[in-house]
Each structure stands twice: as C-alpha cells, then as structure tokens.
C-alpha cells in the first residue's frame, strides 16, 4: 500500500502517457458510438420540437380515470408486497446454500449458478416468460419479482455469510448442536441486521419494478401506462407518472424508517 502510494507520488510530476492514451481512446469511442446513433442536428431540433409538443399535451394531467389508476396502483403494490415476502423466504435457503464457508463446493456451485441466472435477466424479461407459463395477470408479475428478489438478496446474503466470524459457529458446533441449530444460533444472529437491510432495499426495488412488469402483461399499472402511451393519451400518462413517483417516494421514506427501526 505505502509502496504503491510512493510510486504514485513519483509519477505525479511527469505526464502519464498511458492515462492520456486512455482518454483519447475514450473520446474516439464516444465519437464512433455517437455516429452509430444517427444523431444529426436536424433530428435533435425536430426532437426538441416534439418534446415541447409532448410536454404541452401532458398538461394539465387528466384526472377523469382516477378509479382505474387507483385499482391498478393497488395491484402493483400487492404484487410488490407478495413478491417480496416469498422472495425473502426463498432467498434464505438459497443464500445459505451459496455461502462457500459453510457448504461444500458441489452445493455452492449450482446455488451460485441459480443466483446468477436470476440476477442476469431484467424482471421484465422474466415476466415475459411467466406470462407465457401462467397467463396474463398479477401472478406472472409476482413470480417474476420473486425471481429478481432471489437473485439480489440471495447474492448479498451469501456474501454476508461468507464474511461472518467462524468462531461463534465453531463454538455452537463444539457444544454438539445439530446443523439447523448451528445455522440459527451461530450464523443468523451475525447476519440478521444486514439481511433486514437487503430485504427493505428489495421491497423498494420490487415496488419500482412492479409498476413496470405490466408493460408485458404481468399485472399492475404498467399495462395501463403503456396503453395510454400507445393511444397518445399523454395527459393520462402524466397522471400515472405523478402517481408512480409519489408512491415510490413515499415507499422510499417508509423503507428508510423500517431500516432505522429494525437495525
């Protein structure tokens, strides 16, 4: 560490050509990738005009269909709450199985692969598959968000378990406790606070995503939002967006409180 520091100090005086080359490469990339987007000045100006018209049509927000908005929003919230509950329950064993300091390799490897698969797909993509499997509606959204929750909590939970102190585990083991007791008295007390933190984060994230899975027909307000966009009902879009943002902000404050109370 100190050697690295002193090495850096020496290099401070003269230009670092490697870093400069990196910046040049970055600039070249931006120009190249930007050219692929077909951004022309005309298009940008037309886009701005479109944007102004778009915003003009959003206001004033349309409040004539508040009942529909309310029932869809409730469904989104229900999806998020149920999915978080089952996601949390399922991610406990999955995370335990994936912890390399407690489990043999032949157990952690499949568990880690499972977590990686759950994590690498956006909930909306998973929702598509579940819509095919269980049909349109809230159930597909719930299942998709359960998968997302397992991916997120499972990974962080496994990492938290890998960081625990093994002394307490050994102490419980030395007293002749069976495996389940080693878990409940040696492992869980050390990670419970962080686990609650992960769960509240996931509740937050599930709330955000439950407003989106509707785009592919998996229930919640997303379907109504997408339909309003396609019918150019931009004033209703505006109402829905305001409602979503309000719910997410309230939920963010709520989950923050929850963390404070239980940690």
């Amino acid at each position: 560490m100190s050697e690295a520091r002193s090495g850096r100090m020496v290099a401070l005086g003269r230009p670092n050509w490697l870093v400069r080359a990196g910046w040049v490469a970055l600039g070249v990339y931006v120009v190249y990738a930007g050219s692929l987007l077909n951004v022309t000045w005309d298009r940008f100006v037309i886009g701005l005009a479109h944007g102004a018209e778009f915003i003009g049509r959003m206001f004033p927000p349309n409040v004539s269909r508040l009942e529909l908005l309310f029932s869809d929003m409730t469904e989104s919230l229900e999806i998020a709450i149920i999915a978080t509950f089952f996601g949390v329950i399922l991610s406990l064993p999955v995370g335990l199985l994936a912890a390399r300091n407690l489990m043999p390799v032949w157990v952690t490897w499949p568990a880690r692969l499972f977590i990686a698969v759950c994590r690498s797909f956006h909930p909306v993509i998973v929702a598509i598959l579940f819509v095919k499997a269980v049909g349109f509606g809230a159930l597909a959204g719930i299942l998709a968000l359960i998968v997302a929750s397992i991916g997120f909590i499972g990974k962080l939970f496994a990492e938290a378990i890998e960081e625990i102190s093994l002394k307490q585990v050994e102490a419980v083991r030395a007293s002749g406790a069976p495996f389940m007791n080693v878990i409940t008295f040696g492992v869980l007390p050390q990670v419970l606070a962080r686990f609650i933190g992960f769960c509240t984060y996931q509740l937050d994230s599930n709330l955000r995503n439950s407003t989106m899975v509707g785009i592919v027909g998996a229930g919640g307000i997303g379907g109504t939002l997408f339909a309003a966009f396609q019918r150019f009902d931009y004033d209703f879009v505006c109402t829905i967006l305001i409602a979503i943002i309000a719910v997410i902000m309230v939920a963010e404050v709520g989950t923050q409180r929850l963390r404070q109370v239980f940690q």
């Binding site: 298009r43 778009f54 966009f229 979503i244 943002i245």
Partner: peptide, 21 residues
C-alpha cells in the same frame, strides 16, 4: 431515480422516435 428506465425510454421514444438514440 424515481422514473424507471423503461418509462424514460417511452418518453424519449415519443421525443426522438424509435431507435438507439
């Protein structure tokens, strides 16, 4: 942060038209 990336995408599709932009 409160607006999902798909909603941002819907907004920008309405502004710039469909595509990578």
């Amino acid at each position: 942060r409160s607006v999902n990336s798909m909603v941002w995408a819907l907004l920008f599709v309405a502004v710039f038209g469909p595509g990578a932009m």
